[in-house]
Write a protein that binds this DNA or RNA. Structure first.
Lengths: 202, 202
DNA sequence: TAGATTGTTAATCGATTAACAATC
DNA sequence: TAGATTGTTAATCGATTAACAATC
């Protein structure tokens, strides 16, 4: 089951995937070679890869194409998943225009905003709906994921709305801790805090 | 010294700061109250806060205003730090327009792009310069931080440029691992990977 | 005083690294 | 074969949690 993988390992899987995809030569690659390229321990690489269906071969390592397939399979890149964005400000629009989600089988299907100037527009080919219609639209669209790009002051209320519409996974860019019921998973990305942490290091 | 704080603790400090700022009542707050509000252990809260200059008082806890000041001091919110953005695409423009950096004493002073249609424009009141002039402008501006919002294919080259201009701290949004010399710190934010990780959880 | 809280030391837990047998 | 690599078990390391003396 996926729940037994440490989050630390799970977070490294996309790093391996990006690296392997960036390679041009096919054939085999060893855990040691991956470890050297990414600046980490080779046992850790093998342990992480062992959570996927990847099978290394003694003496040669992992077949690059197989390893990519195993990582993609584990990360669900082949399952199509719909995501919606709340808040069509600059960040929300940036995510609507970003094409990197498709690598992971994620499709941004719509955004919601309370600004009537934005409602009815399209960004990156995706519609911006009125947040008032969110409950109804979410029933129609039935997305698995919600991304919150709203101000901190309304993030909890928006989270409550999306949870009531059966979304269990929320990526939150607002600098506020969301209180959610059991079974709902929140991941937070606070860009300003990240820059401050970076600035504080060493 | 700051280098002896675990990164895990450092990453929680902005969470405490956000929470404390969100409170309206002044006076004292205990580590237990903070822990309950944020869903964590109270000893961990005390340990984390002990890295700052905060002084709790037995029987009552921490004076909210003092604790905020201690966290802001530790995180360097009172030191003005200049940051530049590379890549004035949607994400870069979103960060130029974002006003949350000032909470941490960070000022975005400029962006660089190779698109002549963007060069010379202003976003959020900040200029977009030609990436060709980056080396010269970086000498003038002398920023401490660089944020990379460029495509993965050019991220390493941009990183090399900013490092050669004496920037030691890089926040990288490109889904690629940057190779940097000792003494340079990179933090990565891969939004698509974060959404994929979230989607894979439980 | 009694009780609540801090700050710190000791114990536990979990993740990383080391060691090594199995394999080809 | 010898040597390189995987996969796994044991050891280490570091972070979190528990225990508790000190304080007011």
């Amino acid at each position: 089951m996926k729940s037994d993988i440490p989050v630390t390992s799970l977070q490294r899987l996309p790093v391996y995937l990006n690296y392997l995809k960036s390679l041009t030569s096919d054939g085999y690659i060893s855990s040691g070679a991956i470890a050297r390229a990414l600046g980490m321990g080779e046992v850790l690489v093998r342990k992480d890869l062992a959570f996927t269906s990847a099978q290394g071969r003694t003496r040669v390592g992992y077949l690059r194409t197989e390893l990519i397939a195993a990582l993609e399979d584990y990360l669900g890149c082949n399952d199509k998943k719909k995501a919606v964005i709340f808040g069509a400000g600059e960040l929300g629009k940036a995510l609507m225009s970003y094409n990197g989600f498709s690598n992971y089988g994620i499709e941004i299907v719509a955004a919601f905003d309370n600004d009537s100037a934005k409602v009815g527009t399209y960004v990156g080919g995706k519609p911006v709906f009125d947040v008032e219609s969110a409950t109804q639209k979410l029933v129609e669209l039935n997305p698995r994921l919600a991304v919150l790009c709203v101000p901190a002051s309304v993030a909890q209320a928006v989270a409550d709305t999306v949870i009531s519409c059966n979304i269990k996974k929320i990526l939150n860019f607002a600098p506020v801790l969301l209180h959610v019921e059991d079974g709902v998973i929140v991941r937070n990305i606070d860009v300003a805090a990240n820059l401050a942490i970076l600035s504080s290091m060493i």
